[in-house]
Design a binder for these strands. Structure first.
Lengths: 194, 194
DNA sequence: CGTTATAGGGTACGGCTCGTACCCTAAGGA
DNA sequence: TCCTTAGGGTACGAGCCGTACCCTATAACG
């Protein structure tokens, strides 16, 4: 029927695109190999020749649709930086991207191999570095004690936000909560390390 | 063969016990309806007459095997209380119980109905109250400012610990990390709210 | 320009699981 | 004693994963 027969890179991209769309529409549970193959206009052979598992395809599809550029706000105040950072993260996790990511993380809880793949892909390390940079700038401005430039301080806000997602089922958090995390936890913590 | 035929409560308990054992041995993914039925010495009819989904059975089985008595340490110092609390939680989550719970939580990420069931069963609220009680005692001793008796302060240590599980794949955290959470995050945070 | 190894396409299948349907029989109350 | 109820046995449809097989388009290579 179709005159052309796609090969190599072109076919691979088509499969990834199809898988990403399935992920977005139906989540990881709904991302069936047959449906991906059908949507890509190919068959499962071409998929299994490239990825060993369904899960591997899921991860590849996710990274295909998401090249999350990490935000790095510099508003001039520690409070402004932190709040902006949390707002960006909240927006990302509430987006369809975030839904796919959370779904994949949940599904990968069984398979440790995938979990590590996801983790190294999630950019947790660079996230830390951004927060540490914020703290360093604040310390240089005299806005925070030098002892506040610390790994645990840097990771706490995001961890609290993430836990907030877990407590609510809803992955989106009202802005008021973000303000609360900054004013009631992050800034007191920074002050308390004088 | 078996002369007796179990009914009602007796059969229900047998099914729950079988499901709980399957959960413990093979996780939620391995808890097959057929296997539960076989292990309980019955068939799927008896199960589906009681629980509509596999997931509902999973939750029922979990709550059947876990009636987690909430710890409530009172060591005389805020640091001691917090550390003891984190140690207890860490032990619980590292145990087979915890493995089952984490597995269920992951599996329930898709089905919001189950997620709420799990949440209301997890006792997050009473956890908060225990931490608030610790803070109140510390404030009464003059060990902490009154402003530290605050919901966000109370929930932060457990949230950080939980996030620590997510960062490592491993659900068990070395004791040193618990000490770090208390000394580098919790106590500075309490101090910072003066 | 012809030949040949490679990779896609089509299709079918085995194995597993969920959830349902039937039919028969033990249990226990009326 | 009879009769409603609930268990037991079994089979089945449907969906999915991962594999196998066979045929053909494609591209590299002589």
């Amino acid at each position: 029927m179709s005159g052309r027969r796609r090969r190599g890179e072109e076919l691979e991209q088509a499969i990834l695109r199809a898988a990403a769309e399935e992920l977005r529409e139906s989540g990881y549970a709904g991302m069936t190999m047959d449906r991906v193959a059908a949507r890509a206009g190919t068959n499962k052979n071409a998929i299994y020749r490239r990825w060993p598992h369904r899960a591997a395809l899921g991860i590849a599809a996710y990274r295909h649709l998401s090249d999350a550029a990490l935000p790095n706000p510099d508003t001039g105040s520690l409070r402004g930086d932190a709040l902006e950072m949390l707002r960006q993260i909240n927006a990302t996790w509430s987006s369809p991207h975030g839904a796919v990511l959370r779904d994949l993380l949940a599904a990968a809880a069984d398979e440790p191999e995938l979990l590590t793949l996801m983790r190294e892909r999630s950019g947790a390390d660079s996230m830390d570095r951004v927060w540490l940079g914020m703290l360093e700038r604040a310390a240089a401005r005299g806005e925070a004690p030098a002892a506040a430039v610390h790994h645990r301080v840097a990771t706490t806000p995001v961890m609290v936000l993430r836990a907030e997602y877990a407590v609510r089922g809803n992955p989106s958090v009202p802005d008021q909560v973000l303000v609360e995390i900054v004013d009631e936890v992050f800034l007191p913590l920074v002050r308390g390390r004088g």
